[in-house]
Design a protein around this nucleic acid. Structure first.
Lengths: 212, 212
DNA sequence: ATTTAATAGACGATCGGTCGTATACTTTTG
DNA sequence: CAAAAGTATACGACCGATCGTCTATTAAAT
């Protein structure tokens, strides 16, 4: 999630040494992800991101139309990053389906702990901020949730067919329940600076799907 | 939650007509609650609150030391307001315990609908923002949750004794689970502009406590 | 020579916060 | 009891810092 910035001269850089146009852009996105998972969109100023990425202010608007476009890029980047992380746990066929969800939870716990529970979920942060955000973000955020939901639903369906969970749970509904509560748990973990809310929610969720 | 502002003359107002010192302060808090439940602390500027409350800037700093002190007053005001609302549902003895929680959920649904799902929970908003907030807010927010938790736990204990829910649910733990997930549901309801996440979570929660 | 990637720096708006002053009520004092 | 002193509330101009954005300019690439 971090990219090393480069010291640049004024004017167009020579082709030889440059690792390409994407470097600066990637640096901005990397720093942006770190900042927004921590403090959200509204509170994070461009200056701070630019300073951390060591990218001059004038350059920002070369790579992005405005802050809104930057925000969209971050949503997309985070959605992809997280879907990937999720999929790594959820497709681990050495584990039974429910254990894979558990594995994701453990991974997330470790991830939050690593940053002392300062960083949460970028999508959750922005969802909460929605009233202060460009309306164009709403659908992007919802689509990310729909994607994540589908991935959990698939695993629950597997669990159902394996007979690990009650016959009458509807995987799609349970998956929605999972992400609703999960975002709440992340929020609370940040507030309490503890993994306990994540565990608490995960335990409840497991009991729910097992008990039907 | 709203207070009507009055046009004031310069200087200290005469005692006869004035409804007292608390008027301006109350107007600020009323407008502040509306603004913060919608957009959070960081994004809400004092100027906006002052404009809406029709209170000049100079007066603000007469009633509050700074924005931080104002924020604390809002947390307290909201905590009290909400605990009250909560208690009205939870002590309705014409209903069995679990139905009272359901009643709260219905009330909250109506409340969010009334404002087109723009306003959420001030405590949840600020919890998510915590990384961008004065550290002094953290304990206040946690205390509010502890208070709300105790109230739900009490009802769950009643339900347990009435035999409405599984013997082996631990009321305190379930109450924590409730608020963890509830804040997630409110977040999602704002994003989706729909009461469905609130229902979805409530249904799951009910199934969980019943099933043990 | 023209185009394009990249930068420097300034722009107006707004941020939280301060200050001097106007007015009304309360307390102290002679 | 009246005048003076002190306090409570209100007002809005102003401050430096920072916000997101934009224009002019530089230098490499074609």
């Amino acid at each position: 999630m971090n990219t090393v910035p480069v010291k640049r001269k004024r004017g167009r850089p020579p082709k030889s040494q440059n690792t390409g146009y994407q470097d600066t852009r990637q640096a901005l996105i990397g720093v942006g992800l770190a900042a927004l998972t921590e403090k959200g969109y509204s509170y994070t100023g461009l200056d701070e991101i630019l300073r951390q990425a060591k990218v001059p202010k004038g350059s920002f608007y070369h790579y992005f139309d405005n802050k809104e476009a930057f925000g969209k890029a971050l949503i997309e980047a985070y959605g992809r990053f997280f879907a990937n992380k999720l999929e790594r746990s959820l497709t681990d066929n050495t584990l039974p389906p429910l254990e894979r969800i558990r594995a994701f939870v453990e991974g997330a716990k470790a991830g939050m702990e690593k940053f002392d529970f300062r960083r949460g979920c970028l999508i959750g942060n922005m969802g909460q901020e929605m009233a202060a955000l460009p309306e164009s973000f709403r659908n992007l955020l919802r689509e990310v949730f729909r994607d994540w939901e589908a991935r959990i639903a698939r695993v629950l369906e597997e669990a159902r067919q394996a007979g690990d969970i009650s016959e009458d749970v509807v995987p799609e509904q349970m998956a929605q329940f999972f992400w609703i509560g999960w975002e709440g748990a992340v929020l609370r973990a940040k507030l309490d600076q503890s993994p306990q809310p994540l565990e608490q929610f995960a335990d409840g969720f497991m009991a729910l799907v097992r008990g039907g």
